[in-house]
Nucleic acid binder design. Structure first.
Lengths: 163, 163
DNA sequence: CATCTATATGCATAACTATTCAGCCGCCGC
DNA sequence: GCGGCGGCTGAATAGTTATGCATATAGATG
């Protein structure tokens, strides 16, 4: 196909993982409003947030997020994903507070809910992951220094997997 | 139309309400097996119980019973008064990080895991509890100012209940 | 009794959702 | 670098569900 107009957006570069997660967060947010009755409606809601995507993809997203349609309306089902108890605490912290992840060279920038950066920072320190040389927390942002760009990306992937 | 073969069953006399309730019970029963992925499957399941009905009617039944389709499978949603997600989130934070509680006059002293005080402080702020005038966080300690000694004790009780 | 109303239903079809297919991109090993 | 692999995506389309309409019955009403 023609790369220039792919997905109908010149400015939207392909970004596996990141884009999808961003969209999933937006979808959950929109669905929680409790007024979405079809995937087309959801599509329009996302468009208002500058996220353009096809119905096909939404169908797949809805499967992955295990959303339910009941009474003609989509809803979020709250479930308890099980994982190893040792990692469980860390995972909960990440899932609860982590808002966004980005990488710049060998620095991973993690956005958290307001006031929660130090908790996330502490949690990451405690994992003892070898890629993370050190962390520093602001009010709602954590910088994680990695040994290299490659390890930074690996770190990002690891964090995303926990979400 | 021809009354004799209506609905293809000579013996099934029209009985508004009764027939429908019977069918609804059967539907709930079948759905709870957790293997129904489409209304046509449900139709076959009902046929095995000598209940013949069209897909149209099942669509309407499913609406009335407020069944949900999630992960490609129909499920019965058990209606229970679940606490609001915001409450749930607060509860998780408290259970995760709170280590100890004490009261001194109108000040509630909360010990948290190291580095988590600001998160707990923030969470308490966000509850909007009227007894809590304000909070201040150190590294692993939060002070909560209450209006009075009595309200301080009430606050302590409320927090303990969440554990 | 004739008729009116409310409920329940099936058929045809519109509306909606899932899946198949092919293309694109980043990553990894050579 | 280059080719293969795997994840992500849109377009087309197959599959599933909801709905407009006509009809049937029970009960209410004059």
């Amino acid at each position: 196909m023609h790369a220039l107009t792919w997905r109908g957006q010149l400015f939207c570069c392909y970004n596996p993982g990141g884009m999808k997660r961003l969209r999933h967060n937006a979808i959950l947010d929109i669905i929680r409003s409790g007024t979405i009755a079809s995937q087309e409606e959801l599509m329009h809601g996302l468009k208002a947030r500058r996220i353009e995507v096809s119905q096909s993809t939404l169908s797949r997203d809805i499967q992955e997020l295990r959303l339910a349609k009941t009474g003609g309306v989509y809803t979020v089902v709250e479930s308890e994903p099980v994982s190893k108890p040792s990692d469980e605490s860390f995972r909960r912290i990440i899932r609860e507070f982590l808002v966004d992840i980005a990488v710049a060279k060998n620095i991973v920038v993690v956005k958290t809910g307001p006031g929660h950066a130090s908790t996330v920072s502490q949690a990451i320190d405690e994992t003892g992951w070898p890629e993370a040389i050190g962390t520093i927390a602001g009010e709602n942002t954590v910088f994680i220094a990695a040994r290299s760009e490659k390890e930074g990306k690996k770190l990002e992937r690891r964090l995303r997997e926990l979400l």
